[in-house]
Simulated assay, not measured.
Amino acid sequence: MQSPEQADQRVRQAMQRVLLATLPGALVLFGLYGWGVLINLLLCSITALLSEAVALRLRARAIQPALKDGSALVSATLLGLALPPYAPWWLAVFASAGALLAGKHLYGGIGRNPFNPAMLGYALALVSFPQPMTHWPASHGLDLLGGLQQVFGLRLPGQPDAWAQATALDSLRINKSLTMEELFASNDAFGRWGGKGTEWVNLAFLAGGLYLLKQKVFSWHAPVGMLASLFLISLLCWNGSGSDSHGSPLFHLLSGATLLGAFFIVTEPVSGPTSARARLLFGTGVGLLTYIIRTWGSYPDGVAFAVLLMNLAVPALERWSQPRVERSTS
């Protein structure tokens, strides 16, 4: 039987490992988009910690132990990595505050939230402000000063007014006439296998996720379920390279937030199932819904909405995964 101190220490260690595992993906994102990534992380982290402190104060709970467990910082980090670099500062603040207040403390704090806080904050921002949430940089980005000017809305002489482009997933979703070969050849958003640059970001998150698996921070069930179902449905629905193609399995695995979702989102222990079979079903549902939303929905990447929808199904998954007990007739 663990003491409260030992349980708290275990949570802190797990959160520290998750933060460490995000480092490869964060570094690749920084190399791809520049200072906007770090600005996002800083804004989300400060807002999350302040929101956590205010909520705890209003609930008359101890502030310091909750801030030290690292859960708020992990949610802020995952959210900051998912948001578009150089988004307006208020967007990161809104999403991060929504994640902590509506996604966590509305239900009683850590251990009680039915929804993934980071994905709830992301979904709130996407539904409320769709235009800036789809405003991704088309190039490496800006230097630190230029990035701060862009984020805080300071339009100085010589600064570009707009330098964004549609992502690979968005370009594929709205494509009506070009074949896949023509899209990859003519559209700068496409790389060799998936989204330009984002394929390497996904591989970096894969490396971090494998580290967490080796450290036994979570089990393999949810990530494998998500990636296997996304691969299978994209293979079954793959109609070649014509203009009506929905993209190859490799394209879907290496585009958008696929591997960030598989190893850092669907593995969140509080909002996800507890049994191994239920975790496998949970990940499978996330993968299927991600593909459906990407292909036929109104949003280019469906990871956030897929996770939130499957969060609603967790109680049913837990019931279905329980072994049946045969009643004796004697």
Rank of each mutant, 00 (worst) to 15 (best):
V18H: 02
L32K: 11
G80M: 11
V93L: 02
V54N: 00
A62N: 11
L83Y: 13
V93Y: 00
N40A: 06
W89N: 08
F30K: 02
S75I: 15
S71G: 09
L91A: 07
L83W: 11
L49T: 02
Q13H: 12
L91H: 01
L50S: 14
S45A: 15
G25F: 06
A55P: 01
P84A: 14
A26C: 14
Q64G: 11
L29I: 01
L41N: 04
L58N: 01
R59F: 03
L58G: 00
L32Y: 12
L56F: 06
L91V: 14
L23D: 02
W89L: 03
I39F: 14
P24W: 02
T77D: 02
P65L: 13
Q16H: 06
L67S: 14
Y33W: 15
P65R: 14
R57T: 10
A66P: 06
L78G: 08
V28H: 05
L20P: 01
S45H: 13
A76E: 05
Y86A: 07
A60R: 09
L91W: 00
Y33E: 03
L23K: 03
L29T: 03
V74I: 13
Y33V: 05
Q16M: 14
L73Q: 10
L78F: 09
P85K: 11
A53L: 06
Q16P: 00
A60K: 11
V74A: 12
T22Y: 04
L43R: 05
L49M: 13
T47H: 02
L56M: 12
Q9R: 15
L32E: 07
V54D: 00
P84L: 09
P88M: 04
G25W: 06
N40H: 10
A72D: 04
L81W: 06
A53V: 10
L49F: 05
L43D: 08
L79K: 07
A14R: 12
L32M: 08
S71A: 11
P24G: 03
V18T: 08
N40G: 09
L43I: 09
I39G: 09
Y33H: 13
R57M: 09
F30Y: 14
P65N: 15
R17Q: 11
C44A: 15
T77I: 08
G80N: 10
A60C: 01
W90K: 04
I63F: 08
R57S: 11
G31N: 07
A53P: 11
L42D: 00
I63C: 14
E52T: 10
S75V: 15
Q64Y: 09
K68D: 14
A66L: 08
G34M: 05
R12Q: 14
G31A: 08
L83R: 12
L78V: 12
F94E: 00
P84S: 11
L56Y: 07
